[in-house]
Computed example of a mutant assay.
Amino acid sequence: MSSTKDIILNCARDQFLSDGYKGLSMRRIAAKADISATAIYRHFSNKEELFHCVLEKGFNTYTRYLTPALDASTAKERFRKTLAYTLAFVLEHPRYFELIFVRSDTKDQLVHHDELRTRSKMSFDFYTARIRECMDEGYLKQDDPSELSVLLLATFTGFFSLYTSGVLPRSQGEIEALFWRTTERILTGIAA
């Protein structure tokens, strides 16, 4: 069962995705969460703190998905698990994917929060480290790991944006198969 705070965070996330930061209303969030307008202030002092916590929950959730990839024994396995866990994150938390990767007004708000801006860069750094390891291990061609990370993240963000917008198949089996087929095409071009 979700806590009141989690319900509020989910309602705030959904309202932000539909109305943007300027459209966030503590009253409307409270109404959606089925609590009184004053009760929301027991958990969050203002709209900015609430939105900060929404972003933090999104980044924390994504980090929890990625970090188990580090348990794999080879660079290739860590890289492929990173891709698999990213896919799982998007399938299980499409709204958080949209919040932290797609919405431009999320980036506008990050300007005011150094610690969140650092967290937002984590996925790029995580991908870049896995790519660098794969180059060192000989799985991927030698190249600029940061530029390759940009290429892969841009490709995957585009792919997942097509999925969350409803353009791609919606069944889990179909989207997983399509993701791995397109990923293998990319990997063929960058494999050593």
Rank of each mutant, 00 (worst) to 15 (best):
K141V: 11
Y65D: 01
T63E: 12
L151C: 06
L70G: 07
D125H: 08
T61L: 11
T157I: 10
Q142C: 05
E92W: 00
T118I: 15
Q109T: 07
V102D: 00
R119Q: 15
A84G: 09
P94D: 03
T74H: 02
A84S: 12
L99I: 08
T67F: 07
H113M: 03
R132L: 12
L66D: 04
E98I: 08
R78M: 07
L83M: 15
D114K: 14
K81E: 11
K107E: 10
Y127D: 01
R95P: 00
D125N: 10
L152M: 14
K81Y: 06
L151F: 11
F97Y: 13
E115Y: 12
C134V: 05
D136H: 09
A88D: 15
L99M: 10
A129P: 00
L151E: 02
S123A: 13
F101S: 06
K76Q: 13
G138R: 11
T118F: 13
T61M: 06
L116K: 06
L116G: 05
T82R: 07
G138L: 05
A154V: 08
R132D: 12
S149E: 01
Q142M: 10
D71L: 12
T82H: 05
D125F: 02
G158R: 06
A88I: 00
K121E: 15
G158E: 05
D114E: 14
D105K: 07
Q142F: 09
R103C: 10
P68C: 01
Y65P: 03
R64W: 00
L110P: 04
G138C: 06
S104L: 04
Y65Q: 01
T86C: 07
L152F: 14
T106H: 05
D105T: 05
V90L: 01
S120D: 13
K141I: 08
V111N: 02
H93Q: 13
E133A: 13
L152W: 05
T74D: 02
A129T: 13
Y96K: 10
A154M: 10
A129C: 05
I100H: 09
M135D: 00
K81W: 05
D71T: 06
E137I: 03
A84L: 10
E137W: 02
F159I: 09
I131S: 03
E115R: 12
L116R: 04
L148D: 00
L91V: 09
Y62Q: 14
T67V: 13
E92M: 05
Q142E: 12
L151K: 04
R95L: 12
E147L: 11
P145V: 08
